[in-house]
Simulated scan of single mutants.
Amino acid sequence: MDKTKRNLIIIEIVGLLIALLWLSPFYLMLVNAFKTKREIFEGVLGLPTALTSENFVNAFIDLNFMSSLFNSLLVTGASVAIIILCSSMAGYALARNKSKLSGALLLVFVSAMLIPFQSVMIPLVSLFGQVEMLNRAGLIFMYLGFGCSLSIFLYHGAMTGISKSLDEAAIIDGANKFQTFWYIIFPLLKPISVTVAILNVIWIWNDYLLPSLVLEEANATIPLKMFYFFGQYTKQWHLALAGLTIAIIPVIIGYFFAQKQIIDGVSEGAVK
């Protein structure tokens, strides 16, 4: 066996071990989702004695899953769409208007990424409580504020690779500033838009702290509902793991339908 083939075998073995390590949490979640509470405490690695859907039925009911799923989809979808729209326009304006003011504004946005949410959450919730915006609309507005800094920074960086001659050609053809951005520039920003969407979807979909401060129980998202399986004196691991299994199904379905756009966007961004 030559050295090249031996190195390939070693790489394949290491890759397999890493894959098994990465998949181990999913194995533990799926296996224990079918167990009773007693079986989980007896051993988490073994297979269940009998497959039953009782945990999933109870978790589906306790989570009020359809309502929680709707709330998560509404908050995540609306927040990401608004962040992409506002951040791309802001990044375009800052990149095309070279002045001390635009440079200062970009510095403000970049500096805002350094502010931890925990330092402003109490004043923020108090302020929004006074104007009665502690609801889903208020939450979406907060996500816009917290998510725009990084997104504007990414869009501004992407704009540096797009020639200003495209703007000039569009203006000569009679397009105004908004038409130039929407029909000429924004389609060219698809790779960075996919990146911004992925980063913000992962953050907003899984966020617990901010919704816990803003939303009422009727508007709770899936991460908030999952908390109800863990009380002060008891933890219903069998229901929690079944609930987690149900909760990842929409994510898998969403990725299945959007994987072409995600892969194309990331690939185009890598080539650029």
Rank of each mutant, 00 (worst) to 15 (best):
G254N: 06
D167F: 03
S165V: 06
Y92A: 05
V120I: 15
L51S: 09
K35C: 08
Y143A: 09
L224W: 03
S99R: 03
T4R: 11
T4M: 01
C86L: 14
I82C: 00
L144E: 06
L241D: 07
I263L: 11
A242T: 13
E39C: 08
A170R: 09
M159G: 10
A218S: 15
N7I: 02
K164D: 14
S119H: 00
L74T: 05
K260D: 08
E42P: 01
E54C: 01
S126P: 02
L21G: 14
L20K: 03
M1F: 06
G145R: 00
V194T: 10
F229T: 01
G129M: 06
L94E: 04
L213A: 14
E39S: 08
N97R: 14
V194A: 07
L241W: 00
I248R: 13
G147Q: 05
N7V: 00
V196W: 12
T160Y: 00
L134K: 00
K100V: 07
D207Q: 02
L107E: 03
A175E: 11
V108Y: 15
K98H: 06
I10V: 13
L63E: 05
Q130Y: 04
V201H: 04
L127A: 07
I248K: 12
A158K: 10
S126M: 14
V125S: 02
W237L: 10
D2C: 10
E268T: 01
S87P: 11
N71H: 04
A220V: 04
S163T: 14
S267N: 06
G138I: 07
L144D: 02
G103D: 01
L21D: 13
A218F: 07
G91I: 06
Q118P: 05
G254A: 04
Q130I: 02
K164V: 06
D173Y: 02
S79R: 11
K37P: 00
S88T: 01
K35M: 04
A112W: 09
I248F: 13
K235A: 11
N7L: 08
K5F: 07
A19I: 02
L224M: 15
L47D: 03
G231V: 11
K37T: 08
G174D: 06
Y155V: 01
P250M: 03
I262F: 10
G243N: 10
Q232H: 03
G157F: 09
I222S: 04
G77Q: 05
I84A: 05
V131A: 05
C148Y: 03
V131F: 12
F56L: 10
S165Q: 14
D167T: 10
E54R: 07
